[in-house]
Write a protein that binds this DNA or RNA. Structure first.
Length: 495
RNA sequence: GGCGCUAUGGUCAAGCGGCUAAGACGUCGCCCUCUCAAGGCGAAAUCAAGGGUUCGAUUCCCUUUAGCGCUACCA
């Protein structure tokens, strides 16, 4: 049961064209469809709209399917999984479209157009010049047999145009926009079959959605203006119209459509940066949909539970990477140690901090090192920078202020005590280091800061960083001592 | 140009005729703390403009403005 259908099984679809990297906006469209299907116990169909032969590639299709799977969205019918309404690639459905085209042609609802690109362009230009809207004026609407024979003799390959009825109000019932009315007089006879015999988007999408028994067409807002054309075809073919739901676009920071300029735009880029599916889904869901509560963090299960089309917003949303980072960080912290290490691995390898072939003690050490980053990163690609200090014994002071810390007169006392006591510690772990620091504090009667900060700077060159008690055991006695001595020497401090 | 959609803080947004106009991210401050992060507490910050309708408009209507989309033998 849902708000927009009377107990009829909900059948939604995601129908991308495989013409490039899978865009984050596409992922959101897919997510909303998936959520509605799962929420209502309906079906999600995955159809590939590959009629643009210039730009469609098999790699892109694979990329889309892989991204959907990675995000945790499965489909009930469609490419790869099959189903009773296939095939699910449009290029494999050409004979189906042909049948309906013949029907429209026979009924006079469509006609062959022999205009050449040049003629069309000429018409456009003259209309623009006359200050009119450039649209096809119906030159080939009523061709005589002789004219047709003539064009054929010239070897012209015709397109098929849909005969748009005049003076018709076209009502689009939209779940998110409400009722939107269009005037057919603003629509020129549009091409439904290209001269190479392949249908155009506006035509194929109608036949497919109808034949696949799609009940709800949820897609990006850019398609809203095309919907009246599609409605005309539904009617001409005697198909029942689905319920539409046009969700708003995702914009970049400067309020223009998301593009490369805005940073990562494809799902794959986010995957490679080490974002988590849960984080991306959660973030995308909140872009254009709001729960009926103050909750911000949603698992996929919770989203399915809470999602509803009537809480989908109409206004476009700006993609806010800071919020994505915040959400993703939440999920990073939730990972168990093993999963976090696996997430870190490719980035650690890329940074040259490991090979992936480590085992035994070395591997255990790496895991402990990586674990120190878990609370601090938003996505996995940030991990190497976060643990860099464990791999690099050569470093400079971050600034003069840091170096100055080592010149305080109490520093030699603190450091000498540390260097003397450190090797004596058995079982060097977090607690032991803490105990040792406390002992130094007591012995020197210094404030915590005067003990910790010089050690921190001497050990890392930095005034900021992870907890010292966690770092020392990972570095070990030898490296700790070596680093501290080197730093003091560099700062010209005598011990 | 025509048609269409949209308009609450910097961002995501709740609101669906009467509220001190939620909440979150970010920002800033305080607490915690060796530092950073996390966490806790708190602050600043919003109804695009102008007309109506109404006892009363953020909310309904109109106009303007702005952004976006469509207007392809792309999808």
């Amino acid at each position: 049961m849902c708000c927009c259908c009377n107990n009829e099984e909900v059948r939604v679809r995601f129908a991308p064209s495989p013409t490039g990297p899978f865009h984050i906006g596409g992922a959101r469209s897919a997510l909303f469809n998936w959520l509605l299907a799962r929420k209502t116990g309906g079906k999600l169909i995955l159809r590939i709209e590959d009629t643009d032969r210039e730009r469609s590639t098999p790699e892109s299709e694979e990329n889309i399917k892989a991204a959907l799977k990675w995000l945790g969205m499965d489909w009930d019918e469609g490419v790869d999984v099959g189903g009773p309404n296939g095939p699910y690639h449009q290029m494999e459905r050409l004979d189906i479209y042909k049948k309906y085209t013949d029907q429209l042609l026979a009924e006079g609802k469509a006609y062959y157009c022999y205009c050449t690109d040049e003629e069309l362009e000429e018409e456009r230009q003259s209309l623009i010049k006359a200050g009119k809207m450039p649209r096809y004026m119906g030159k080939c609407r009523n061709l005589t047999e002789e004219q047709i024979a003539q064009f054929k003799a010239e070897g012209r390959k015709p397109t098929v145009r849909f005969r748009v009825p005049a003076d018709k109000q076209i009502l689009v019932r939209d779940m998110v926009r409400g009722d939107v009315v269009f005037d057919s007089n603003n629509i020129g006879d549009f091409v439904i079959v290209k001269s190479d015999g392949i249908p155009t988007y506006n035509y194929a999408v109608v036949i497919d959605d109808a034949l696949m028994h799609i009940t709800h067409v949820i897609r990006a807002e850019e398609h809203l203006s095309n919907t009246p054309r599609q409605c005309l075809i539904y009617d001409a073919l005697g198909f029942k119209q689905p319920t539409f739901g046009h969700i708003s676009l995702i914009l970049g920071k400067d309020h223009t459509k998301m593009s490369k300029r805005h940073g990562a735009t494809s799902v794959d880029q986010y995957r490679q940066l080490g974002y988590l599916p849960a984080g991306i889904n959660n973030f995308l869901a909140l872009l254009g949909w709001a729960p009926n509560s103050e909750q911000e963090i949603f698992s996929m299960e919770e989203l399915v539970q809470e999602f509803s089309m009537d809480r989908v917003a109409k206004n476009p949303a700006v993609f806010d990477i800071d919020k994505l980072n915040w959400i993703n960080q939440h999920y990073m912290r939730q990972l168990d140690a093993e999963a976090f290490f696996e997430a870190a691995k490719p980035h650690m390898i890329a940074a040259g901090y490991m090979t992936g072939a480590e085992e035994g003690e070395k591997l255990a050490w790496l895991k402990r090192v990586v674990a120190t980053a878990q609370e601090h990163v938003s996505y996995a690609a940030q991990i190497p920078a976060c643990v860099e200090m464990y791999f690099n014994d050569e470093f400079d002071f971050e600034n003069e202020e840091a170096e100055a810390v080592l010149k305080a007169e109490t520093v030699p006392t603190v450091i000498n005590m540390l260097l003397e006591e450190l090797p004596k510690v058995e079982n060097l772990d977090n607690a032991a280091v803490k105990a040792l620091f406390k002992q130094i504090q007591k012995g020197t009667k210094l404030k915590g800061k005067d003990v910790f900060m010089p050690i921190r700077v001497a050990l890392t060159g930095n005034q900021h960083g992870p907890e010292l008690a966690a770092m020392v055991p990972l570095l070990g006695v030898e490296r700790t001592a070596k680093r501290i001595k080197a730093s003091l020497a560099k700062a010209g401090v005598e011990l």
